[in-house]
């Protein structure tokens, strides 16, 4: 798999609906996402983290700046690498069973029935959902649904995995278990991942690099390397290095959240 880096150069996005005043969601964002690494985007509500993800995916066109995909080997520009998204709201198709949800993308791509079944079963096993292949999403708990969401993205073998607040809709305990599970998956697969999150803990546990964003209009306020050893787990949270990072990010975010609240934009965390 050719390693491709994603580069945001001075990217901005202003929504200009005809009826109301234009809103600037992103302002001059420059940052890079290295191949084979996990980068977390963290910031106050409404700062444009998810917007950034949608631009990378190609679902939103920036109104300024350039988005580049560069081959790691020679620095040449290349096409958008294969990407798959894991969504906060899971977005599973309620009329399809677990296995048909996971195989949906393969089916669209014209993979034969026996081949996509085998691949979907492997992906389902990777998220520990063996035996649930023929259930419907409504028969599963929130945590299990998101594991289906994860399997559905992983089965596409994306070069870049986009995680849009993947555990935001889950309760605290389920979240912990899934964070550990995801940490294992990204550590072993070596895939490039961009994680949008509200949780400092989640960012530190999963990411190699953390980008802290400002309140709207979003910019990159800080670029923090996480050099804690892998594999990481709940035990990592007791590492003194973890506490130092947590405090540093919290201090940055606290100011931004306050600014977002005073500015009247974005929500209260």
């Amino acid at each position: 798999m050719p390693a491709v880096a994603i580069e945001f150069d001075d990217i901005g996005l202003t929504f200009a609906p005809a009826s109301t005043a234009p809103t600037t969601a992103l302002e001059a964002v420059s940052c890079g996402f290295e191949p084979g690494r996990v980068t977390a985007l963290i910031g106050p509500s409404g700062c444009g983290k998810s917007t950034l993800l949608q631009i990378a995916r190609g679902f939103l066109e920036p109104t300024r700046g350039t988005l580049r995909f560069l081959e790691r080997a020679n620095g040449k520009a290349t096409a958008r690498p294969a990407m798959s998204t894991v969504w906060q709201a899971f977005n599973l198709f309620p009329w399809l069973t677990v296995i048909d949800n996971v195989a949906f993308g393969l089916d669209l791509a014209g993979v034969t029935k026996s081949d996509r079944d085998a691949r979907a079963r492997r992906a389902i096993a990777a998220v520990d959902l063996n035996g649930f292949e023929d259930r419907y999403p409504r028969q599963l708990s929130g945590g299990m649904r998101q594991r289906v969401g994860l399997a559905r993205a992983l089965v596409m073998e994306p070069e870049v995995l986009l995680l849009d607040e993947p555990f935001g809709a889950l309760d605290a305990q389920t979240r912990l278990v899934l964070q550990e599970q995801l940490a294992r998956l990204v550590e072993t697969s070596g895939t490039t991942a961009i994680l949008v999150t509200h949780s400092i803990e989640e960012a530190i546990l999963l990411a190699d690099t953390i980008l802290v964003m400002t309140a709207r209009p979003g910019r990159i306020a800080a670029h923090i390397e996480v050099d804690l050893p892998r594999p990481r787990s709940m035990a990592t949270t007791r590492d003194p290095g973890f506490s130092a990072l947590f405090d540093r990010i919290y201090a940055l975010l606290r100011d931004e959240v306050m600014r977002a609240m005073v500015g009247g934009q974005g929500g209260v965390q």
Binding site: R57, W87, F93
Partner: peptide, 20 residues
């Protein structure tokens, strides 16, 4: 969200109509 998920998995407009 379902339409976005289908697009993310590579669905074309015709496929979104029929499959989602």
């Amino acid at each position: 969200g379902l339409v976005l998920a289908a697009r993310d998995l590579g669905a074309k407009p015709q496929q979104i109509m029929r499959r989602v």
